[in-house]
Design a protein around this nucleic acid. Structure first.
Lengths: 133, 133
DNA sequence: TTTCGTTATTCCTTGCTGTATATTACGACC
DNA sequence: GGTCGTAATATACAGCAAGGAATAACGAAA
């Protein structure tokens, strides 16, 4: 059930490699980032912050802080929580949450295209031999 | 003389803001990044790792490790050091060093164009109002 | 009213990263 | 050969962020 690594993409790596990270800032620092989006998707999958955190080998505390940070910076909440009740409660993704997930993946895909393009365009400049000194 | 902050660009910040970092990987991890390039430029300016480090409020040890990391991963050295001698020695940027500085700034500028473009294209999706739930 | 699993929150510990400090090596110049 | 300021390297320390553990709050259902 649990134990899905976040980093299960394996591609052959080339050197030099053009790399980077992207995120979206809000009023109080980071609003959306890769890990946060994965977390949202896991919450959607399990209906629980606790289970989502375990599946990512992340502490509940950290997961909760991320959710709180995202929710408190969004115009409309990305997730809603039910505390108490049958099964103890749970958490689900709102329509707005689904929207920002799509938005981020678009941003993410564009960025990877950008990196690939830059690498293709600039890479040769590094290996190029010039005079000494 | 010294004490130039690295972060002296101030632009009005908008939320949500599309942000990111880029770097270039080598065989042993990071090869070039923003801080490393600034360091190279400071070395060019002062002719000394010690003075360059102080000007960035960076420990000499850290600066030296960065220089060593860059040099050991480059096909041809980016800086050359003179130890001993008049003035104790010094460090200067090679032609190849100048080349990678230019290369990185090109990469950097392209990235900022990319971020600006993405923000313009995607930003409205966040504020857009939808139904509740 | 008891049970149950989750959300929500506090406290404490621990590991790590960067820094300060100290020391050695170096070699042109006087 | 003495001086000087730098490069180069090792050791010890401190601060802080990340995580673990523990606990309270919650409310539907039996």
């Amino acid at each position: 059930m649990y134990k899905k690594s976040i980093h299960n993409r394996k591609k052959k790596i080339s050197h030099p490699g053009f790399r980077g990270r992207i995120w979206i800032d809000g009023r109080k620092g980071t609003f959306l980032g890769y890990g946060r989006i994965i977390l949202l998707e896991r919450i959607r999958e399990y209906g629980s912050i606790t289970k989502a955190a375990k599946s990512m080998e992340m502490s509940y505390r950290h997961a909760w802080e991320l959710v709180d940070s995202m929710n408190s910076q969004a115009a409309r909440p990305l997730v809603k929580t039910l505390t108490g009740g049958k099964g103890g409660g749970g958490t689900y993704i709102t329509k707005n949450g689904e929207k920002v997930i799509k938005l981020f993946w678009k941003f993410y895909a564009d960025f990877h295209d950008f990196l690939k393009h830059e690498e293709k365009q600039l890479k040769f400049l590094i290996h190029q031999k010039g005079e000494e000194e």
